[in-house]
Design a protein around this nucleic acid. Sequence first.
DNA 1: CCCCAGGCACCTC
DNA 2: GAGGTGCATGGG
Length: 302
Amino acid sequence: MKHSGTISLDGQPQTDLVATLESGQTFQWDRRDAEMFSGQNNTNPVFSTVRQYNGEPVVVFVSESETGIRWESTRKSGEELVQRALRLDDNLQTITDDLTSKDTSGVLIEALTEFAGLRVPHDPLFSTIISFICSPQMRVSRIHGMVQRLAQSYGTPVEADEETFYLFPTPEQLAEATEDDLRELKLGYRAPYVQRTASAIANGDIDITNLPSETDEIRTRLKQCTGVGDKVADCILLYGAGNAGTVPVDTWIQTAVEEHYPSLMGESPRATAQNLEELFGSYAGYAQTYLFHYHRKHYGNA
DNA sequence: CCCCAGGCACCTC
DNA sequence: GAGGTGCATGGG
């Protein structure tokens, strides 16, 4: 890798990349052998991704270091890509303090303490749409596998250091796939949803490049995609559109709210989401991610 | 063999 | 618009 560096995060908790990249918020980072990270003794896990950035494919590796985040990339723009993809402009200490002051039950404070360093990733929009269409009734590791197979089957290959990485397919590339093709990739009953959504975006029926400014209008737009309901739309808003104030309410969050914030229970998951968004403010999505991670770790089989 | 996994589309009423 | 049902697949 030609370019490398360390992004320092002074005064913030050390980033927990495993929790950030492997707990179901993003499916577009792959864990690698630590020895693939050259230039220093590094026993921490290394993750890679490849994506279009400023109109060119960029391969990036990241790993935790004592002083921040170590990165390597095929391009100089890799540093900026990492900055954006991990939302490093968000000061995690400031957000933690803010959410701590707003927590009415104490359980979020526990989660913030136990999983200090967990961040909210920001992925490209289209791949996030498809990833979360694949997510209902599915375990995190299997969603990751589905996304990997889509990239390898329909994405553009990118060579770097005698290794091949696959960009996530464009809408046009993915629209080439038939429903049966996608079933062969083990997408199951989500196959027609992915096929229809990719086609609708590719042929211009659904415009995701010029999104409205209002969150509610973006949600409405996203829900035009087959396979996208309220919860999936909120995941796309949070992880694919960089809307840090959005709270996806899934079964875990539902249970957490019933137990720890009963007064916030709404008539519908979306109504509950609104209550959480009002309580926790513009970084409510971080609160959601910490609560999700906490409950999955303690009560689930993650 | 059973159950369940970051819900959603589709069909009634 | 509210309420029920089917849904592919793999791991425990």
